[in-house]
Design a protein around this nucleic acid. Structure first.
Lengths: 191, 191, 191, 191
DNA sequence: GATGAATGAGCGTTCATTCAT
DNA sequence: GATGAATGAACGCTCATTCAT
């Protein structure tokens, strides 16, 4: 039976190397060495490099979802939900900066474009937490009357850019700073 | 003697191909073909692919600076300057979507990190327009009392994320929408 | 204890896959799956792939020998024996086209050359049916005075080439056609 | 400009290595070494290994056609034409045993099956010399009334099998032997 | 100065074989 | 005895770079 341990080691090695050196700067052989497995072993767990990259993304997404959803309730006021999600996202990425880098790599690549296209245009079973938040915000007339995608950009665009600078070491995001950025973003979306 | 025309052709070919296919999806040979020059010729103008990529970035930055600075005056009120820069940036990227894609590729790569590090930490002769704007905004107590880098993120983070969606075709940014996004960002940074 | 059933399953799987996809188009893992055994199990019955390939050939040869020898008697006239062998061979290959394909693959490979060398030049205990037929044909002056190997080629060369075309579906060999080809070959070898 | 010399060297190396070791026993790297070129160079002349293999086959076919057609006239009697083609083929293969081995490898592989299918079923511009010979033979009632493909097998099947044995060193085909085999084949096809 | 044929290191991937279970 | 996960050498192929013309 395929060992989850090994699969995890491969995933961990891949995320680290890809986050650091980019997709084509992280050869399969290097990932294998770092994971402590043979080169061929990776292919027992992932059909090919593309599949590895995509599956890795999906695992990360799941991990994030679980993280930010803990303690989250759609019953709370919009503003509180907004702050919750924003704060949790910041915390997650600060705790796992490699994940952030990986996600950024992914989004800025053909992989990411295709994925995002599927997600936005495709038939999705469950409604996204974020979409839901903005829909509620609009319905309750708490947020500016803008397309949901735009509200999303206003809410999380600064998070993405400031995380970049944090990871590069140009700024340091502590709890206070996170709170203030989140507040500023709220000022941007609130009516 | 090296011909500027040829250099330009190479740069134009590179930007188009890299924006579309990514750094490693755009081989030198392909760039050469598209530029209408021999493969070896590129190396007379650029020491290697890395140099080409970096110089291309610098050219783009210059082009953007010139574009957004036209009609710009540091004598005008902060808010007006803010709107001017934001609007111009949107217009530039909508007019030259390839440039935006290239920039994004660049920022999310070892190239970008190294470059940004040099720029922020290094000794820069001229003060950046944006830095200047935020310094003035702080001095005049018009903007929130936040680090300049954070103000930058709040001001342009949403621009970047919404441009991504615009280029992928998920939203359509017209003048009205640009104005509304810019207003929202202003709400975010203004005191 | 090693089970003959399992050995047979492996052999059956190997012949089918190799006949269809060639030696290097039939990985051991694929053979194992088709045989319903573990990949490592094959190596308990056959030292390695080469051995498997060679033993498979020998099994096939045995099977053919048994098939064509049923009802065969060296007491009958040359011509009748010739027709018997030729016809039986045709029938065998038409019934088991995979066997024919396998044999052809084998003969046209380093395996085949080595094997044939051993057989012709080596010390063989039992005299080959075919050799015996041609020796008798020569002794009785019924066949052309040619080297035995040449008589063999004249007798069975057309069989091989026409079987190829039959299997590929270019011609259809029925009993009448088999008889006529056999007659023609006889015309070729008879004095 | 691509040098025909180099292309020829690659072809020569490929034919030798493939004839000796088979398609998968002759890696591109080995072909490159033997041809005295870099590994990547092969790909400037041939899109990939498959193309190299197919093109090599076509070159060989051309070479054979030219060789056997020299001095050939469709005006001569059937028998003479038959003897001419048969003899020339023998001579060609004896002179170029590697070519024979290569052809056999090719015919016994997916390449060969596909090719033969195209040739027989496809729309061919020029009528094949052999087809033409057998059609004339049938029309003049000189040959047995059999399908053309069968006449072909009767005429050249023995050639193929005896060439195999000649190359392996089991028999030695001199002019006399060639003549006698050809005569025997004629006995097989003639009415 | 310009070329593009030539190069070979390095990539993603396969598969015969091994060995711990 | 049987298994199949693990291995890594070896494959086909790409592409940044060089250099003879």
């Amino acid at each position: 039976m395929l060992k989850p341990d090994k699969r995890d080691e491969i995933l961990r090695a891949a995320i680290k190397l890809i986050a650091e050196y980019g997709f084509h700067g992280a050869p399969m052989a290097m990932i294998a060495v770092r994971a402590g497995v043979g080169a061929g072993t990776i292919y027992r767990y992932f059909e090919n490099k593309d599949v590895l990259i995509n599956e890795l993304y999906r695992e990360l997404e799941d991990k994030i979802r679980k993280y930010i959803l803990s303690g989250y309730s759609t019953e709370r006021p919009i503003r509180e939900r907004f702050v919750h999600l924003n704060t949790k996202l910041f915390r997650f990425f600060i705790e796992f900066p490699l994940h952030f880098r990986y996600l950024e790599q992914f989004h800025n690549s053909p992989y990411g474009a295709a994925y995002r296209r599927d997600k936005i245009l495709g038939e999705s079973d469950e409604k996204d937490v974020f979409m839901r938040l903005f829909e509620d915000g609009l319905a309750q007339q708490v947020m500016k009357d803008l397309p949901i995608l735009i509200l999303f950009c206003l809410s999380f665009g600064p998070l993405i850019t400031s995380m970049r600078d944090h990871i590069l070491g140009f700024i340091s995001l502590d709890d206070i700073m996170i709170e203030r950025i989140t507040e500023a973003c709220w000022d941007g979306v609130k009516r």
